[in-house]
Design a protein around this nucleic acid. Structure first.
Lengths: 219, 219
DNA sequence: GTCTATACTGTGATAGAC
DNA sequence: GTCTATCACAGTATAGAC
């Protein structure tokens, strides 16, 4: 594996584990057993490392987020299960680059270039969630005012943006599995009241499974 | 006004405006036209300033958050309007110390003492929201599973924690009025599906007012 | 490509005069 | 209480040898 890529990988890991602000170029070089000078041969500076990591992130995520908008052939359109797994995938991708959201304010101040990117991602999230909700609502008699629909989408977008940070605030030792599972459940709870009976059956099932998971992990 | 208090005030303002990490002791001293040495006469360091600001914040907020739990005499118990204004007050208090949440991760890493405090506040938020929801649900035929109820409370707690940061991500020039108003609307949207007809009338009214407000501010 | 050594910068913090 | 120095340190970045 090329040094350049190893630097990116290690940076990502350290940023996630120790926070971007706290992980210095020296730490990264040290972790890799290379000299700081070597690191600066491959990257102009920390800025560039962050920028490239963000690029990776944005590329992977927008691709995923565009899927439901482009209406792939859903055999069971409107079925909750598909969306459940889909959100799971999205949260997993967010989790890989979670450091980006842990200190969003500072990050955007120090690297103003990223702001546009974050906004684009936000828009993609909104679109994806809207597509999911619309698809689910086709099978229930739900009608929402435009304002209410927009507010629901906005709430879910916020949730999708900050869930990982919120979870970290609660449990400092992070268990990715639990965190992501619960994140999906939380998201689904927001649409639960609008679901049809058939869909609710699956929701309750997941609720139940998750509850069991929690009991198991508490021991 | 005593210098000590002026330091606290100015620090709070600068932290909110420029971010805690970016506002240095020199900036604060400069803004007040006093010397750095003078600042360090009054405070051992930045840590102490942060700690005292957090203390103020925690004191004010927990007091507010305890109110609905201690069941004050509500003439119109279960009426949406009271809760609407209550949430407005809570968000206003959060807004005053918004810098605390803008870089939560870094802040907790650098001042680990604060972690317990943040968790306490989280618990208080949960309790307050639970009390509000319960009171509102008495007047509708809603019944929720325990899991669903907890998830709803958790979602609202997250929303109450990160709304201000989220809003900032969207609109960089912050308009406190709009931000707080919309925050309350977003929170209410989460319980809207469970409300009774009578309560929904008020919700729609607020929706309408807010919509008008938005149109006006867009010009 | 990789290293060592070094310079530069910003920030936190202290000492001692007034 | 307030000021003027001044220190100490960590983190970023560069120069030049190998």
């Amino acid at each position: 594996m090329k040094t350049r890529d190893r630097i990116l990988d290690t940076s990502l890991r350290l940023f996630n584990e120790e926070g971007e602000a706290h992980a210095t170029t020296l730490d990264i070089a040290g972790e890799l057993d290379i000299s700081p000078g070597n690191l600066y041969y491959h990257f102009k500076g920390k800025d560039q490392i962050i920028a490239e990591l963000f690029e990776q992130f944005q590329l992977a995520l927008t691709q995923t987020l565009n899927a439901p908008v482009e209406q792939p052939l859903h055999e069971h359109k409107g079925h909750l299960e598909d969306n459940w797994y889909y959100l799971y995938v999205v949260l997993e991708e967010l989790y890989q680059y979670r450091f980006l959201y842990h200190n969003l304010d500072d990050l955007m101040r120090r690297y103003p270039t990223l702001v546009r990117g974050f906004r684009r991602i936000l828009a993609a999230k909104r679109a994806a969630l809207k597509a999911i909700i619309s698809s689910l609502f086709e099978h229930s008699q739900t009608t929402l005012s435009k304002v209410q629909m927009d507010a629901l989408v906005e709430n879910m977008t916020l949730q999708l943006t900050y869930w990982l940070s919120y979870d970290r605030l609660l449990h400092d030792q992070s268990d990715a599995q639990r965190c992501i599972h619960q994140g999906v459940l939380q998201l689904m709870t927001m649409i639960a009241p609008y679901l049809g009976e058939e869909q609710m059956d699956f929701y309750r099932e997941c609720e139940f499974i998750f509850d069991g998971m929690m009991d198991a992990s508490e021991q």
